[in-house]
């Protein structure tokens, strides 16, 4: 009987201690805060900008090319909506490329002889078609010389370059949380910064790495969109 009472008291103390500990825990995620910096070239509005691919300073398994593509989509979409003309640098060709499509068809049914007269409209029945496309030649924006890049920028009417960077800090704490920082920088063609906006969000207890990236991107861009 006495042992039961002691056990109950111990349990109550433990419960109280746990309650006090939990009460001390921060239940709400810290509010992400954006930092905005106006550079020396801030002033006359930039309308057409070339967006470079998103860079990620993190381990390959934490920040993947898919993440970079997603952040690029979010950033470019937001800036386009507030009035910028954003040109994707990945889609700029410095020299025309060629594509070769090879299609293999297995034909069944009776032979129809020569069909060159109307090759597009009259075909013998086929079964099993496979097709492969190979792109060859050409030069991308990244492989072009600085002179070529300048000429392309002029042709596109671009007056600025957009850079987006994702940084993930080292894992720390019991939850192995990381600090995700997304920075968006717009520079003029001479390299001077027009503006820079960044925002940090913690992963771990509150967000997955992907959620943190999403929040940090929106947080950084909201400050841009509000201008």
């Amino acid at each position: 009987m006495r042992r039961d009472i002691q056990y109950g008291a111990c349990l109550r103390r433990f419960g109280l201690g746990l309650l006090v500990m939990l009460a001390g825990c921060p239940w709400a995620a810290p509010v992400p805060r954006a930092r905005v910096h106006h550079g020396p070239a801030y002033g006359p509005p930039l309308t057409t900008v070339v967006a470079l691919p998103v860079e990620c300073d993190a381990l390959r398994e934490v920040c993947t090319p898919e993440h970079a593509t997603a952040i690029a989509a979010a950033t470019r979409m937001e800036l386009e909506f507030v009035g910028y003309t954003v040109v994707d640098s990945e889609l700029i060709n410095a020299e025309m490329r060629r594509r070769t499509t090879e299609t293999h068809e297995q034909l069944t049914g009776p032979s129809v002889g020569r069909v060159e007269v109307q090759p597009q409209t009259f075909r013998p029945p086929s079964s099993g078609t496979s097709s492969t496309t190979a792109v060859s030649g050409g030069t991308t924006w990244f492989a072009a010389s600085p002179e070529q890049q300048q000429a392309l920028l002029a042709a596109l009417g671009a007056s600025g370059v957009l850079r987006t960077t994702i940084s993930l800090g080292e894992a720390h704490g019991m939850a192995q949380q990381r600090t995700v920082d997304v920075a968006v920088t717009l520079t003029r063609l001479d390299g001077q910064i027009a503006w820079r906006a960044d925002c940090s969000v913690e992963t771990g207890d509150y967000h997955s790495a992907e959620q943190a990236m999403e929040l940090a991107t929106h947080c950084a861009l909201e400050s841009v969109a509000l201008w």
Partner: peptide, 25 residues
């Protein structure tokens, strides 16, 4: 197009460049 009686196969190769393969100019 190669045929042997009622069956055969056809290989088509098309080489060119589309709008998105071109330079901005």
């Amino acid at each position: 197009e190669q045929r042997q009686q009622s069956w055969g196969n056809r290989t088509t190769t098309q080489t060119g460049a589309r709008f998105d393969d071109a330079t901005p100019f």
